[in-house]
Simulated assay, not measured.
Amino acid sequence: MLDIVIEARQASLGNGLEVRRILPFRLRRMVGPFIFMDHAGPVSVQPQQMSAMDVLPHPHIGLSTVSYLFGGQVTHRDSLGVEQIIRPGEVNWMTAGRGIAHSERFEDPAALAGGELEMIQTWVALPEADEESAPAFDNYQPQQLPIFTEKGVWMRLIAGNAYGLKNGVKTHSPLFYVHAVLEPGTRFGLPKEHSERGVYVAKGSLQVNGNRYGPGQLLVFTKGIDPVLFAHEKTTLMLLGGEPLGERFIWWNFVSSRRERIDQAKADWEAGRIALPPQDNQAFVPLPKDPFRLKGSPPPQPLS
């Protein structure tokens, strides 16, 4: 059965970039190891406004960030000295481990012209054994990500394994992440080999069990159920999930199985112990006092 439908909420990254935030959600914090999901765009601004959209250097621990674009391009720079432009069809997979800082900048005027920029960013929690691993970064080109097509279906495997597809994207736990496009009238199913499975409708609409769902909705299904997804129109989906990792705490950009580790990360960022990107170290995002309390929400809660 359909376990829950999560409605995306509008959120601001504080730099004029508005996003639709899907995860975490108070009634369903994670889907497999995925603990965060934002959908940005389509965005269109004037060239003189571009610098205001930049995401300045900020820290992460205990997770991997996964960036995937439908349109436009973004320049990534991080503490390891990596500078990488990501374009549609590519994957930027950055594993924070014990700590990393990175920035995301919009430096190509054409990327924001005509509403071209559109991006999905997810965070994948790390297993406890890998939470303190060395930070790492990988960019994967489209030819490294297998594509499957049949009548009415196009899909690209971003990471993990699903529908008999596998690729070389380095992951730390069993998961799947798929970009799929369905033509009108197409029926489609979810991969059966994973315990937790979600379907995010990025564009178009789906019918499931007689109910219709549209853009900005994440459908999460109970284990063992094999739903039929019917596309009323051309529909773009992000399919994600995998095996649960257990309790996690999240605060700002930090994720950990231990609350005290997040407190250490706060202190490390304030003290400058997490290095800034060497090519982008003139400004950074300061540690918030407590973004949860500022919004009137309870203190950071475990994600499970």
Score class of each variant (00 low, 15 high):
residue 72 G to M: 05
residue 74 V to S: 12
residue 74 V to L: 15
residue 75 T to L: 13
residue 75 T to F: 06
residue 76 H to Q: 07
residue 81 G to A: 10
residue 82 V to W: 03
residue 83 E to G: 05
residue 83 E to K: 06
residue 83 E to A: 10
residue 84 Q to H: 14
residue 84 Q to L: 12
residue 86 I to K: 00
residue 86 I to Q: 04
residue 86 I to G: 01
residue 88 P to H: 02
residue 89 G to V: 07
residue 90 E to L: 02
residue 92 N to A: 02
residue 93 W to R: 03
residue 93 W to H: 05
residue 95 T to G: 00
residue 97 G to S: 08
residue 99 G to S: 05
residue 102 H to C: 08
residue 102 H to P: 04
residue 103 S to H: 09
residue 105 R to Q: 14
residue 106 F to K: 04
residue 107 E to V: 15
residue 107 E to F: 13
residue 109 P to E: 04
residue 110 A to S: 08
residue 114 G to Y: 09
residue 117 L to T: 12
residue 121 Q to G: 02
residue 122 T to N: 10
residue 122 T to K: 09
residue 124 V to K: 00
residue 124 V to Y: 03
residue 125 A to Y: 11
residue 127 P to C: 06
residue 127 P to I: 07
residue 128 E to F: 00
residue 128 E to T: 06
residue 129 A to K: 08
residue 129 A to D: 12
residue 130 D to S: 10
residue 133 S to V: 15
residue 134 A to Q: 13
residue 135 P to Y: 12
residue 137 F to P: 04
residue 138 D to A: 15
residue 139 N to G: 15
residue 144 Q to E: 15
residue 144 Q to C: 12
residue 145 L to N: 03
residue 146 P to E: 14
residue 146 P to R: 11
residue 151 K to Y: 01
residue 157 L to S: 06
residue 158 I to Y: 00
residue 158 I to N: 09
residue 159 A to G: 14
residue 159 A to M: 11
residue 160 G to F: 05
residue 161 N to C: 05
residue 163 Y to E: 05
residue 164 G to L: 04
residue 164 G to T: 04
residue 164 G to C: 01
residue 165 L to T: 03
residue 167 N to R: 03
residue 167 N to Y: 07
residue 172 H to P: 02
residue 173 S to R: 03
residue 173 S to D: 06
residue 173 S to W: 04
residue 174 P to S: 02
residue 174 P to E: 02
residue 175 L to T: 07
residue 175 L to R: 01
residue 176 F to N: 02
residue 176 F to T: 09
residue 176 F to Q: 07
residue 177 Y to Q: 01
residue 179 H to E: 15
residue 179 H to G: 01
residue 180 A to R: 00
residue 181 V to C: 07
residue 182 L to A: 07
residue 184 P to A: 11
residue 184 P to E: 11
residue 185 G to P: 01
residue 186 T to L: 01
residue 187 R to M: 10
residue 188 F to P: 01
residue 190 L to N: 08
residue 194 H to Q: 03
residue 194 H to F: 12
residue 196 E to C: 00
residue 198 G to K: 00
residue 198 G to I: 07
residue 199 V to M: 03
residue 201 V to C: 01
residue 203 K to Y: 12
